[in-house]
Amino acid sequence: MSSFWEYANPRKFMRTTNWLLPLVAAASVVVTATGLIWGFFFTPDDFRQGSTVKIIFLHVPAALMAINAWIMMLVASLVWVVRRHHVSALAAKAAAPVGLVMTLIALFTGAVWGQPMWGTWWAWDPRLTSFLILFLFYLGYIALWAAIDDPDTGADLTAVLCLVGTVFALLSRYAAFFWSQGLHQGASLSLQPGTRVDWAYKAPLYVSMSGFVLIFVALVLAGTRTEIRARRMKALVARERMA
């Protein structure tokens, strides 16, 4: 029986993703396009929010992936720390820029949506604030990877940063809720997605969410492949110098 850990072998990973990646990439394009086209062209306007409700098909999937990308990085970092599989560390590295972009999309679409609905681009609402903080954590993580030359040292240090960062990101989220309640009592601006959303919106939303998940998987696979190749190249060049 083949075990999941076989994919920790770079060669096996490359062989598998060689045929898997085009499939996932194609599926991600098809599903995302379906979800977004369905959401953009074939959903009714909300009676209260007008056409701005169509932003939900970008905003919610992006926000979902912004958080899930960090969770995936956390798991991959843990796997690296515990079992020292290089593919795992490189996958965490490959996921970070995608998470950063997802956070950016969530923040931007949120601002554009908030402007007509709440009358402001930005409010120091706890949800918004914790996303901005998540954005900073992504930046720090990527900057640390970029600053370190030795790949194994980089993998170790960023893994520790990811673990510590997760704890502090959760604390910050809790702090943001505490702080915002403390300053403006009862001013709850956040919409609660999913509570009273009609199926006319829910169905394309789920499609679009699956599409974003597939985009994320495809990009992480592609990025990991690139990182594996980059490491191999580094090793070859180093051997060349030694000879």
Binding site: L136, G140, A143, V164, F168, A169, L171, A175, W179
Partner: peptide, 19 residues
């Protein structure tokens, strides 16, 4: 880089301290 890494970690302390 140090400030980029450390300042986000300071957020909870800052929030509760100033609060």
């Amino acid at each position: 880089l140090l400030s980029l890494l450390v300042l986000p970690l300071y957020i909870p302390t800052l929030v509760f301290g100033a609060e």
